[in-house]
Computed example of a mutant assay.
Amino acid sequence: MNQKTRITFVEVFNGDYMHASLIQQLLQEHEIPSFLRNELMGSLEPFAVVAGGANPVSIEVSSINYEFATSLIAEFNNAIPEEE
């Protein structure tokens, strides 16, 4: 098979810088390369990035890793913290 697969970047998360950093670390631990869009401006001046300043930082991954990344993020968001 000599089919060429077009690989694009897709957004899997958008939110504030702190949550985006945590989720990017989670993706890295599962060997999913990603990058933060608007990382600097989203943390310094979110109102300049998005109207209202809500969810200024996004995480993008390769389209090949999209399904695995979204399932990890959903699991992360639905996790119940352990009590000490």
Rank of each mutant, 00 (worst) to 15 (best):
E11G: 03
Q25R: 13
Q28M: 15
M18C: 14
Y17M: 07
S21K: 11
E60D: 04
I59Q: 00
S58P: 07
V50D: 03
I7W: 06
S62Q: 04
E31Y: 15
T8F: 14
I7K: 11
P56T: 01
Q24E: 10
A54G: 03
L26P: 07
M18V: 15
H30L: 08
R6D: 14
L40R: 14
F47I: 04
M41I: 12
I32T: 12
I64G: 01
L22Y: 11
G52A: 06
N55R: 03
V61D: 00
R6S: 14
R6P: 02
I23R: 01
A69F: 02
I59S: 00
P46T: 07
P56H: 02
S63P: 03
A51F: 11
A48D: 08
R37Y: 06
F13C: 02
P33S: 12
N55W: 00
V12I: 15
R6N: 11
P33I: 07
S62E: 07
V10G: 01
Y17N: 03
N38Y: 09
A54V: 02
V10R: 07
A48C: 08
L26T: 07
F47Q: 05
A20V: 06
E45S: 14
L27R: 06
F35M: 14
P46C: 09
S21M: 15
R37Q: 09
S34Q: 09
F13M: 01
S21A: 14
F68T: 08
H19G: 09
A48W: 09
A20S: 14
L26N: 13
P56E: 02
S63Q: 10
H19R: 12
F9N: 10
